[in-house]
Each structure stands twice: as C-alpha cells, then as structure tokens.
Nucleic acid binder design. Structure first.
Lengths: 228, 228
DNA sequence: TAGTGGTCTAGACCACCTC
DNA sequence: AGGTGGTCTAGACCACTAC
C-alpha cells in the first residue's frame, strides 16, 4: 500500500464529529495515542490539510477547517453577492496599480509588442480576514489613459465601462501548482499546499483581447464554480 | 524561510537544459553532490514533480517530464482533435457501464429520488499509454433504455443524440484534491500529487439536468482549457 | 516560558525495475 | 543481483504563539 490509508481513516473519523474551529490533539500526543511516529502522523495530517479538512496553525495547533468556499470566477459582483449570502464577509484589497512593461506572456496574450506599456492591477480577495486569492490583471496602457486614477478597487470590468468597454471571458486555463513562497506570504498558506492558478483572457464583443488576468487561489479552501 | 528555495532553484537550473525523458541523477548521488541529505533533496523533487517538471519512476529513476497537456473539458470531440494535432495519440478506454442505484450526490444533482436507477459509465482517457484522467458519467436509467447496449465508448453526448437528446454544460465545479489510492492506481500517479476534480452538470435546452459527470485528472500533467 | 507545528539529520529497510 | 525511488524510525532543534 502506497500510504497508510487506515491511519488517515482513523484520524478522519476522529475529526468528523468536531465542529469547524475545534482543536485536534497536538501532533506528539496524537501520534503516541495512535501508536505511530510523529513523522507518519504528520504525513497523514498533510493529506487532511490538502483536502481542506484541517488547518494548521503554527504555535497554536491544528483545528478543524470550515467547509469549502464556493468561488465564482471572472465575475466580481457575483463573487461578492454569493459569499455575502453565506455570511462570509467578502472583501477585496487593492494591492497596487502600476504602469509597467508587458512581460512576454502578457504581450502575447494581449497581442502587444514585447515590452509595450500595460497596467498591472494587483488585488487580494478575502473572506473576513482570511486571504483566499490574489488576482493580477493586465491591460494595455495606451488605450486606457489614467486607469490608475480612475480605478479605486472593486470590479475592474465595471471600471472599464467608463471607457465604453464591456468585456466578456474569451478563454480560461486552469491548473494546480504547489504554493510558492509568494503564495505562502500573500495567502498565508503553508508551502507545498496546492494552489489553483486560473488564467483568463477577456475581450470585447469583436473578440479583441483586452485583459489578461492570473488568479492564484488557495485550493484547500475553495470550490471553483463556473456557470453555463 | 519556509522551504529551501535555493536548493530547488539549483535543481531547476540543472534540469532546464535537458529534454523530456532524459534522466536526472539518482537521489542519493544528487543529494551528495548538492551537499544535502536525501530527505531534503526528496522534498525538493516532490515540488518539481508537483509542478510537472519531473516524473518519478520507481525502480528506474527520475526523468524530465514532457510539457503540460492542454485538456479541453466537456467536449470529447475537441479533446481528441486537439491532442491529435499535438501528436499525442489520444485514446479512451471504456471501463464499464453499469446500472446502479444513484448515490446521494448524483440523485440530488439529477433531481432524482435517492436510490433511483442510473447508468454509471466509467471511462479512462490516455495519451499514448499514459492515463491522464478518469471520468464517471451518471445518467437517469429509466428514460434511457438499453444505454448499456448502445454505448460502445467514445462520446457519451454523441450517443445521446440517438435518444434525441442534445446536452449542454449547465454548471462546472473544479477543485484540487490530493490523489487517493484509487487515483494512484487508475492514473498510475504517485499518492499525494494533486488531482483536479472537475464536476459537470449537463442538461437539455430547457435546463433540465441529464448528466452528472465527475472527472479526476492528473494535475501535474494537464492544463485545463475552457473556451468561451 | 511552555507548548505548538516546521524543519532537518542519519540511518534502515522495502518494493520495484532492469539486466 | 544491483540500483532505483518509497517508506519508516528515532531523535534533535527551530520558529512561532499564547500566556
């Protein structure tokens, strides 16, 4: 057997009756009680954490995690409304708007010359005080003067209405990657936990691309939802 | 620092110039050369494997992995055509068609009574001889007599045309979960590597649900793609 | 300061594949 | 048989949090 399934199942049974937020035994104590080394117990907790069933808090302990958060991609308004319905206090924090040179990927996606000026908008999304995703939007700078003055957070697409632009999602790519140091910092996520990387290309009615956005969301807490 | 970033970067530099399929040093040798324990080196390889850069082969060695496979969800035809264009020899293997009682989740999704009879179609998708995803379709059994006789692999949706049904995707949920023992077996995947779980509800033009499908795809090798 | 999870060492043995 | 990755033990020390 490639992994100690029985151990994980035994632990799963222990945490099922508990409510989110309740503390689990300390690793050393739990390991002793189950008759395994701490090393093996930690491997099992690793799995439970990746499944989103428990959450580790360094210096504090391991607690039962709340249920997964439904996360609607590409629609700020519905993201906000959905989570509010669930009593989850959605919030967005604008991390910064910069005018920079497009990297190779962005330039290709937006059909710009390499190094062309683009707006780079970085946003953090949270429920309550828990960060759940970072989003980096890229838009061509030349056709959108003063975007840094006009955008004050909230929905990028709404702000673009001011320029007479109505964007729709053209294409979406999704993959799971292990959290890097940046993710660990910005999402307060343990390294190596999986992160969902969602890349979306949006454009106008004629199919011309206007926005290249890269979302990195904690995979342990989210369930992505795409309608239609 | 939560993880040995420098070590991973050093290893990344070593494998970048290599071509897919080329062998990397044995773990013991590599660890000694880099001046770290095998334990730490393995942690670093764990990350590279989760990123899809390397592939471990027990008893053989660790090799550079081929580039990610674009995977179009919910469209068997395009899945096949896309991969053929890339020279990847797509294939589907029908694992089985059964008539069973709907589980709670399926019944809820298809708006059936608990335990109602459903068809359960299990399929394995591969490129060449490499399994990349398992798909389990659930459809109500009563309105679709003899589906087990009429479906012989390929596209489920195409087969439903024979009943006068044309399905469209109503809703999709995506999450990343660690590979379980079943995934390890069917996808020949190392346990704990992330798996993308894609659940889609499809229905007719009136929005009536007909099909509940759960795809489990290896996240290390795939890049999900959704058009429109 | 005491207790928690996070990292790391050193070493052993096992399961698997190739030859 | 020999080499590979996979698992496991026993123990140490560190970083962080709460009190």
């Amino acid at each position: 057997m490639p992994e100690d399934v029985e151990l994980v199942e035994a632990m799963r049974r222990e945490l099922t009756p508990l409510a989110p937020g309740e503390r689990l035994p300390a690793e050393a104590e739990w390991a002793e009680r189950l008759g395994v080394t701490r090393h093996r117990l930690r491997q099992a907790v690793d799995r439970l954490a990746a499944e989103g069933l428990v959450e580790r808090r360094r210096g504090v302990g391991t607690v039962v995690a709340p249920p997964p958060i439904p996360y609607r991609i590409g629609d700020h308004t519905r993201f906000t409304l959905n989570l509010r319905d669930l009593g989850l206090a959605p919030a967005s924090r604008l991390l910064g708007v910069q005018r920079t040179a497009a990297d190779a990927d962005t330039a290709r996606r937006l059909r710009l010359a390499a190094g062309a000026p683009v707006w780079r908008i970085a946003t953090l999304r949270l429920t309550g005080s828990t960060p759940i995703s970072t989003i980096v939007h890229h838009l061509p700078a030349e056709p959108l003067p003063d975007l840094d003055q006009r955008f004050e957070g909230g929905s990028v697409h709404d702000c673009l209405h001011g320029y007479g632009l109505r964007l729709r999602r053209l294409s979406t790519w999704i993959s799971a990657v292990p959290a890097g140091p940046d993710d660990a910092r910005s999402l307060r996520l343990a390294p190596r936990l999986p992160v969902l990387r969602i890349r979306t290309l949006s454009g106008d009615a004629q199919g011309r691309p206007w926005e290249w956005a890269v979302t990195r969301a904690r995979a342990d807490r989210l369930d992505l939802h795409l309608e239609s």
